[in-house]
């Protein structure tokens, strides 16, 4: 059969090991969907696929075992889902009956967030959807995940951009009864940023990571969060892969949502300017490796309005390891 593979892949279909058989990747922005969409997935899987669904690490579904010849029909079947879950949140999707318009920029995943979780600082689905709306459809390979708090259940540390919720604690000394719950807990589970002075608590702003544990533990609401705006930590350029797997590192702390959106948008311009077009694709992290962090930083922060509380990384040394450095190993042999 004849197939334009590049176009086919952009349509969110996979080239599988079985010739003529494909799988459709269904995006679930923010990892949250109305249960009614499952019947569409079920119908496609049972009518066109092999009756199975695979749940992806990026919180999407992959409908496996679809004959390539059925793609047009499948696209029509999946249209209401794309309409609801992409156009419905403001993504410019084109004609939903044509299926997904791009696949390079991956589904934006999210932990369950503060719709449910007591630790999360914000509605992660909403932020994921807002990011989706800004960056999709797009062919550049960018992975983004958002976590409600610094426990990072969604593993935002493995992404090109990871967003973690932060709390800016506000202390009302009058309401404090010196029970020590916050001080003890900060010592044990966070960074030891709190100490007693004159039976009231003093927060070391440099040590505080904004985890909000003090707010959660306080039995009198002496600790509350600054509710004037939401604060986030933005991690950048974590990845897996064959060359240099590594965790994302903090780029900005106590940054606002608007600034994050601006920075992500500008990153696409940066990629456009610096990508190595001789390669079939280049992940953004490798581009940053080539240009250096300072070039990236200057580019994406240019013209972005940062709030006064925001702290910006001066330089970043990514940890992780180079897979070509293998002198740590000794062959067992016989």
């Amino acid at each position: 059969m004849s197939l334009n593979v590049k176009e086919f892949k952009k349509n969110a279909y996979r080239i599988t090991k079985d010739r003529g058989v494909t799988a459709l990747r269904v995006r679930v922005p923010g990892g949250h969907l109305e249960a009614k969409y499952l019947t569409i997935l079920q119908e496609i899987a049972e009518t066109y696929g092999d009756g199975n669904l695979h749940i992806t690490t990026r919180q999407g579904f992959e409908i496996t075992g679809i004959p390539m010849t059925m793609v047009e029909e499948v696209n029509k079947k999946v249209a209401p889902l794309i309409e609801g879950m992409e156009a419905g949140i403001g993504v410019d999707i084109g004609n939903p009956e044509d299926g997904y318009p791009a696949a390079g920029t991956r589904n934006v995943s999210a932990c369950i967030g503060n719709k449910v979780c007591r630790y999360a600082k914000y509605n992660t689905t909403k932020l994921a959807q807002r990011i989706e709306k800004n960056i999709f459809p797009n062919d550049y390979h960018v992975k983004i995940a958002v976590s409600g708090c610094q426990n990072d259940c969604i593993k935002a540390h493995m992404q090109d951009f990871g967003v973690l919720g932060m709390d800016l604690p506000v202390y009302d000394a009058y309401r404090c009864i010196s029970c020590g719950a916050c001080v003890k807990n900060c010592q044990k589970r966070a960074t030891g940023a709190l100490e007693f002075k004159n039976y009231k608590v003093v927060r070391d702003e440099d040590k505080c990571i904004g985890c909000g544990e003090c707010i959660a533990k306080c039995p009198t609401n002496a600790w509350t969060r600054d509710a004037s705006k939401k604060y986030y930590k933005l991690l950048i350029m974590g990845r897996t892969g064959k060359r240099n797997p590594r965790l994302a590192m903090p780029f900005l702390e106590w940054v606002t949502e608007d600034a994050i959106i601006d920075i992500i948008n500008k990153t696409y311009d940066y990629v456009d300017e610096y990508i190595d077009r001789s390669l079939p694709k280049e992940h953004v992290g490798y581009i940053v490796d080539r240009t250096g962090f300072q070039v990236f930083k200057d580019y994406v922060l240019d013209g972005v309005e940062l709030n006064p509380e925001c702290r910006v990384a001066e330089h970043i040394d990514w940890p992780g390891y180079k897979t070509n450095v293998s002198n740590n190993f000794k062959k067992v042999g016989k």
Partner: peptide
Amino acid sequence: KKDKGTFSD
């Protein structure tokens, strides 16, 4: 007190 509860929002 808007958004001043123990849990966010």
